[in-house]
Structure formats: structure tokens, C-alpha cells
């Protein structure tokens, strides 16, 4: 049994509450697609959240509406955060309506991100589906900044249609680079699309890596992550070096509210990035 529980030193009103957001100013709003918006935000006061690691998320708060867990797609040393939000619910539609100068609340960052330390010296296979790209973008920035830390870097990015591609300009610049390869594919396209058509796994046979010394980072819809993980493991990547970023309903983001459980894990605290080794038995069962 535990020893007696001491009062929380932060419980006084002045000291803050772990679930209280900090105010941030919306600096820029960019429309990515019909339902997707990228917000650039900065602290309104001297107080800001700690710098997020690639793959971590924050709780974004729309005043008077509520909070939603949102991945971090970029951050700067001055405290600036970049988030790409798809308008799918009450909170995210309120976030999508924000304009420059508005205030948004932030708390976090939360969870465990991509295991970049473990991936050093290895080939990287990065597979993003749809809104799975934003939480992976900081991994690419890390690769660009410290290119000599990694071996081959292969990126596959898939969207439903060409109109659903986000970060379009940046994609073009990544495609011009010679220190990594990025393949872009869509599920369906008209005659004006000259790129690949097909789900992300159709691009995998084309990807070159040394399976025994490769880390795979996968983010996207759950079905896409499961099939991609299976495919890269079949290509020789170890299940414990195959990582997916899970998504679940979250209220607290600090493993107190119970909502995000997936088998034994609290996705908010133990994830969102989890190894396929740990997830496989649960991904195979419906409605875990």
C-alpha cells in the first residue's frame, strides 16, 4: 500500500492547475484544404508550454467551447507552435474559425513522441496518411537538421484525392531534395493528376531500406497504420522498431480521465506513439 498522500503543492489557486490552459495568440491561419486549417500560435504572456518533442501533442482550447488533442506539426524556440486541424467536431470547428489576433488556449505537451534517439544510425521509413502528416513533419525537420544521424530516409505520403494534400508547397520542396525520397500518392484522382494512385502500402515495394536496421514511423487512420505496419514488418522491419501514433478520445491528456485507454495503454501518456509489438494483439481485435 501507498504511504499517506500529501497535499498537492500546486493546488493553490495561484500555482495553477495541471488541466488549466495558457492563452496563446493566433498569429497566422492558413487554409490547407476544404476542411483543414493550419494555425500558427504564440504565447500571449511570458508563460509558455515547454518545447514539444516530435510526435507529442497538446490540448488546444477554444474558449467557451472545449478542448481537443492536436498534434504539433512545428515549433520554434520563441515558443511558436504550429498545428494543423481538421474540422470534424464542435471544438475543431471552433478552432477552424479562429482568425489572426484571436486567443486559443494551450496545455501540454503530452505523451511520448517518435523514438528518434533509438532510430539514430538507422534507415527511416516514414509513412503518413491524410492528417497523419502533421505529427510526422517535426521528424523530417529533425532529419534535415541532423541529416548525418540517419541512414536512408524514405517517406510515403498518401491522401484521398489531390485536393486533400496538405503542406503542398513544402511537399514540392521536399521532393526536390536529394537527401531523402518522398513519394506522394492519392487514393483516387482525375485525369489531371500525374502522380501515383493507390493506398500508401502500394508504394512500399518500391522503398529501399535495410529491414534489420530500420525504424518505421507510421501515422494516419488506424486501418492504414495496421496494414502499413504489417507490410513493413513483412519487409523485415522489427515489430519493436515499427511505431504508430494512436488516436483516441481524450479529456485530460494526463492519464486521469480514462477515456483514451487502448488495451493496457493510456494513449495520452504511454503513447500516442507506440510500438507495433505492443499494439499488435489489440489492433487485431474489433472495438478494443
Amino acid at each position: 500500500m501507498l504511504a499517506d498522500v500529501a497535499p498537492d503543492p500546486t493546488s493553490s489557486a495561484a500555482a495553477g492547475h495541471p488541466l488549466a490552459p495558457l492563452p496563446y495568440r493566433v498569429r497566422a491561419v492558413a487554409t490547407e484544404t476544404a476542411d483543414t486549417t493550419t494555425l500558427t500560435i504564440e504565447p500571449r504572456s511570458t508563460r509558455s508550454v515547454p518545447a514539444p518533442a516530435p510526435g507529442q501533442f497538446v490540448m488546444l482550447y477554444a474558449f467557451g467551447v472545449g478542448e481537443s488533442p492536436i498534434g504539433v506539426s512545428a515549433h520554434r524556440a520563441d515558443g511558436t507552435l504550429v498545428h494543423t486541424v481538421r474540422n470534424v467536431g464542435k471544438v475543431t470547428s471552433a478552432l477552424a474559425r479562429l482568425t489572426p489576433g484571436d486567443t486559443v488556449g494551450v496545455r501540454g505537451p503530452y505523451g511520448r513522441g517518435w523514438p528518434l534517439q533509438e532510430a539514430r544510425g538507422q534507415d527511416l521509413v516514414i509513412v503518413a496518411g491524410g492528417l497523419g502528416l502533421p505529427p510526422l513533419r517535426p521528424v523530417l525537420y529533425e532529419v534535415f537538421e541532423n541529416r548525418d544521424r540517419y541512414g536512408r530516409v524514405e517517406v510515403i505520403y498518401g491522401a484521398r484525392t489531390p485536393k486533400d494534400l496538405i503542406y503542398y508547397e513544402e511537399l514540392q520542396s521536399w521532393r526536390r531534395r536529394s537527401d531523402l525520397r518522398i513519394q506522394v500518392t492519392v487514393d483516387a484522382a482525375g485525369r489531371d493528376w500525374y502522380g501515383d494512385v493507390g493506398v500508401v502500402t502500394t508504394r512500399l515495394p518500391d522503398v529501399r531500406f535495410d529491414g534489420s536496421r530500420t525504424s518505421a514511423f507510421i501515422c494516419g487512420p488506424e486501418i492504414m497504420m495496421r496494414l502499413t505496419a504489417q507490410a513493413v514488418v513483412a519487409r523485415g522491419v522489427r515489430p519493436e522498431a515499427t511505431w504508430v501514433s494512436m488516436e483516441r478520445n481524450m479529456k485530460c491528456a494526463v492519464a486521469l480521465c480514462g477515456h483514451c485507454q487502448f488495451g493496457p495503454t493510456f494513449v495520452c501518456r504511454d503513447g500516442p506513439v507506440l510500438s507495433y509489438r505492443a499494439l499488435e494483439p489489440f489492433l487485431a481485435v474489433k472495438e478494443v
Binding site: 500500500m1 501507498l2 499517506d4 498522500v5 500529501a6 493546488s11 495541471p18 486521469l256
Partner: peptide, 24 residues
Amino acid sequence: LAVTDRVFAGGPVTDPGYRTRRSS
């Protein structure tokens, strides 16, 4: 009670309300 102590006061982030009420 020992179980809820672990849930609310045993992890990296603890619940301030629970801890304060529990302490007395």
C-alpha cells in the same frame, strides 16, 4: 482507497483536488 491513491496520486501527473482532500 489504496487503489485510487495510485490512480490519482501515484502517477507523473496527480490530481490536486484528490491529493488535497485525501491528505486530511
